[in-house]
Simulated scan of single mutants.
Amino acid sequence: MGMLVGQRCRLGGRFSRCNDPAEETCVYCGKPFCARHTYVLEGHEAVCTSARCRAKRDDLVAYQEYRRGVLARNHAGLCGVEGCVPHPAHECSLCRGHFCALHVRERMYPFREGWVTVERPASVCARCWDRRKIWRGA
């Protein structure tokens, strides 16, 4: 970690761009940012304060916790949704958690293939379905 030689922070508005020396580059948007525009700086993870990047970082942390809960319930032979007890007979194509028929649906899901987004059928739990809004265009 340390200042990026010759780089300036690229955060701020169109007419109020920050011009402070950049210290890191955001892992999500790739823009250099200064100390004032730092949201997270832990180990190799550097996240700027832009709303999209904060949302992605927050979603990733919450999603990791969600996956741990699904895995724990699956190990007990239960559906991945808390409070649901039916046997999990279906797998989410994205998180690979197991769910009952009520908690996973077949949907057309946008997958990135190079520079193109292709809609393909996938079995998706509600949590993974909602995440697409945050990560769209990433």
Rank of each mutant, 00 (worst) to 15 (best):
A72E: 14
V27N: 14
M3E: 09
A122D: 06
S16D: 15
S123N: 10
C9L: 07
R8P: 03
E65A: 13
R36A: 08
A62T: 07
L94Q: 03
E65P: 07
E113P: 01
R57L: 00
C84N: 01
T25G: 09
G2V: 06
G97K: 04
C100S: 08
A101C: 14
E91D: 13
H37G: 05
Q7E: 15
A51N: 06
E91Y: 07
C128K: 01
I134P: 00
H98G: 02
R52Y: 00
T49A: 12
L78N: 05
H37Q: 04
L41C: 12
C100Y: 09
R68T: 05
M3Q: 10
V27Y: 11
A62Q: 13
H98A: 04
R136A: 15
A55L: 06
A22E: 02
R54H: 07
P86N: 11
Y28I: 12
R105T: 09
V70G: 08
Y66G: 04
R57T: 01
F15R: 15
Y28R: 14
C100V: 01
A126C: 04
M108K: 12
H103Y: 08
G97I: 02
V27R: 15
I134C: 01
P32H: 07
E23P: 01
R127A: 07
H87Q: 13
A76P: 05
G80C: 04
L102K: 15
V5W: 12
D20T: 00
A55H: 03
G13T: 08
R131W: 00
R96W: 00
V104K: 04
T38L: 00
P21A: 09
A46M: 09
P110L: 10
M1D: 13
L4I: 15
Y66S: 03
H90A: 12
R8V: 14
R107K: 15
A76C: 12
R68L: 11
S93M: 06
S16Q: 12
L11A: 00
F99P: 05
R127C: 03
N19P: 03
